[in-house]
Design a protein around this nucleic acid. Structure first.
Lengths: 193, 193
DNA sequence: CAAAAGCGTTGACAAAAATCAACGCTTTCT
DNA sequence: AGAAAGCGTTGATTTTTGTCAACGCTTTTG
């Protein structure tokens, strides 16, 4: 149980069996069917989650009702509206299931208590968020400095499993492009090499 | 001395006078003249800094030698190539001074030692990076979901002092636009209201 | 099983942004 | 003080990307 969660935790800070049991008290499992919401815009993000099985997407809706995907999460990845979670203010993100999912939830109160009571949890979370920041930094830099071909290649290298698992029009949305443009970018890449 | 650094630190975790003195041992002041480098691409980022006075920009260079600004830092902000700092690998970013600067440096070894010896430093850094992540998240979301007009307004609101202090062509670079396009975006905003 | 929905591609056209060039104005340097 | 560099704007043109429409194909659903 909670394999992915503890696999990722131990990669950052290794835990004894007792420590794992201690942390487990603060975790809640949750299953989600494909297309179900984990979080809706306007609600407060009461928990962040780690994906044990399945896939999630996070997105914002613009005035025209169009979806703009800001993040995906596959097995082992952490997902949530961090701003809403930390500040306990209404979320701007929607999060729903791309596939049937098994998740591990950490509520805000569990998070706060673990931060206080368990230095290793704080270290875990510090490293988690530092890694997330570095990844986001890289993504941001690629947006402002690379051509579309280069950006698509970068995404493919950074998230090879994602490309296989998620429809291309969602990758396009994630990159801020129309599906047609991404399709043409891909065909340019293929014909030129 | 180190006013901005400790002001920001105390906003996140409050320190006693003794604790401040303890932290001071690990800090190094540095002055930089306008246009001087703090970090060059290829070098390892040995320190991150907090700006006491002045302004910095971070940027990448593309094949054509063009600058793409990824970040600015004004008084109280933290700056560095985080990836290079954490991994101690060659930096992809260049960082230089937009104005004469006074900086506070924290070396990698100081950072690691503080993380180990002082739980409050780890808490400080965790909150710092969490805030930075949330800000970057917001910036990323605005890139993929807003029009240029909306994006410029968002930047103006998020960083009002930056707009006043930095030439517009650098703001354009930061947004991933040509200077001409930003100029036209601004004129559209002004005529329509 | 049949209908419907989802997906990726392609073409024609429209809209947006980049590029190239020129201009006035201010700041910086010597 | 005078020259040079930096800055922001504007116009004309090219390139890139988005939009709209249609198509074949696969997957999902009832």
């Amino acid at each position: 149980m909670y394999e992915q969660f503890f696999r990722k935790f131990n990669e950052k800070v290794s835990l004894t069996a007792d420590e794992q049991d201690f942390v487990k008290q603060y975790l809640t499992p949750k299953k989600l069917r494909k297309k179900q919401y984990l979080l809706q815009e306007g609600d407060v993000c009461k928990s962040i989650c780690v994906v044990e099985k399945g896939a999630l997407k996070a997105y914002v809706l613009d005035e025209t009702g169009e979806e703009h995907i800001t993040a995906f999460a596959l097995e082992g990845w952490t997902m949530g509206d961090l701003y809403s979670f930390i500040k306990q203010e209404p979320a701007t993100l929607n999060i729903d299931a791309l596939e049937d999912c098994e998740l591990v939830l950490i509520s805000k109160s569990a998070h706060d208590e673990l931060l206080q009571k368990m230095p290793k949890y704080e270290t875990y979370f510090r490293i988690l968020i530092t890694d997330a920041y570095m990844a986001l930094q890289k993504r941001m830099t690629s947006v402002i400095s690379l051509t579309l071909e280069e950006r698509y290649k970068a995404v493919s290298q950074m998230y090879p499993n994602l490309i296989q698992r998620v429809p291309q029009h969602m990758i396009a949305s994630f990159m801020g492009l129309s599906p047609e443009t991404l399709s043409r970018v891909r065909s340019r890449i293929n014909t030129r090499k």
